[in-house]
Design a protein around this nucleic acid. Structure first.
Length: 276
DNA sequence: ATGACCGGTCGTACCGGA
């Protein structure tokens, strides 16, 4: 299975590039974040023409997540029990089961600044998510929690730690909240950055950050141990960040062994069985 | 240089992003 996660920064603005990318990379399952459109405004038809089913969750111009799959898309859940709001519910989490794998597409709150109420919301949201997946993950259900987690796990995951002194995304509090997920047993599937480059996934639009590789690794794939052991390859698709009309995030692409008991024919059956 | 970019919005400035 080829799994990917990508913060597209508006699915409608990115649609031509998304469709090209789906055709070129051919992922089986895609987690999208910052779709920035309501569920019923998601451009599903264009994606379905390429053979994907779509589960979208969006409430308007902010946030928004989705899962695309061409290997089955079952048991879709939007949000999770105990999910905090700001102050009301926000569209930041959606789950679906694809070829036996429980897939979460997550868009963790930004935090804005360390003295902003949004920062406490970010920490609470991460804690609540960890509590929500603790049961299934503890029972060994094959799971990936992936998306824009908005935390750089280590100083190695930002281009210059000095620049981020006092900023969000690198604080001990955020890293501890993220570590709760690893405490459950989830493993960080660290991609390679293509060549010798660091596996950054985000570069600010401003100041030629991408050209200078002033990036951060904040788009993450956290997998249960059995899933992590089946990772054949994982890479950051920097090509998708290049040129005009790009998102400020690059996709992370992960090639996984099929889960035990779920083989190619089963996947085709699941795909056929699902409603179009 | 307290900047620089981009997407969205009942918009033509401002918010949010990170």
């Amino acid at each position: 299975m080829r799994l990917a996660t990508w913060n597209v920064n508006s699915v409608r603005a990115r649609l031509p590039r998304l469709l090209d990318w789906l055709g070129t990379v051919g992922p089986d399952v895609v987690c999208l974040q910052e779709t920035k459109c309501a569920s019923d405004a998601f451009p599903s038809a264009a994606v379905e023409e390429l053979g994907y089913e779509v589960a979208a969750y969006g409430t308007g111009q902010w946030n928004g997540v989705a899962v695309l799959s061409r290997v089955g898309l079952a048991d879709v859940v939007r949000g999770f029990p105990g999910e905090p709001g700001f102050p009301g519910p926000e569209a930041r989490a959606i789950a679906a089961t694809c070829a036996g794998l429980r897939v979460w597409s997550l868009y963790v709150p930004n935090g804005r600044s360390v003295d902003d109420p949004h920062f406490l919301y970010k920490l609470a949201w991460l804690e609540a998510y960890a509590a929500a997946v603790a049961g299934p993950v503890g029972r060994g259900e094959p799971t990936v929690a992936c998306g824009d987690l908005n935390v750089a796990p280590t100083d190695e995951d930002v281009w210059d730690p000095a620049v981020f002194a006092g900023a969000t995304h690198v604080t001990p509090a955020e890293r501890q909240a993220l570590a709760r997920l690893r405490d459950l047993g989830l493993v960080d599937v660290v991609p390679h950055g293509q060549g010798e480059r660091r596996p950054y996934t985000f570069w600010d639009y401003r100041g030629g950050a991408f050209r200078q590789d002033f990036g951060m690794r904040i788009d993450l794939v956290y997998a249960t141990p059995g899933v992590g052991a089946g990772v054949r390859d994982a890479y950051v698709d920097r090509e998708a960040r290049r040129g005009t009309g790009a998102s400020d995030h690059a996709p992370v692409v992960v090639d996984l062994d099929d889960l035990p008991g779920v083989h190619g024919e089963d996947r085709r059956v699941q795909a056929r069985r699902s409603p179009g």
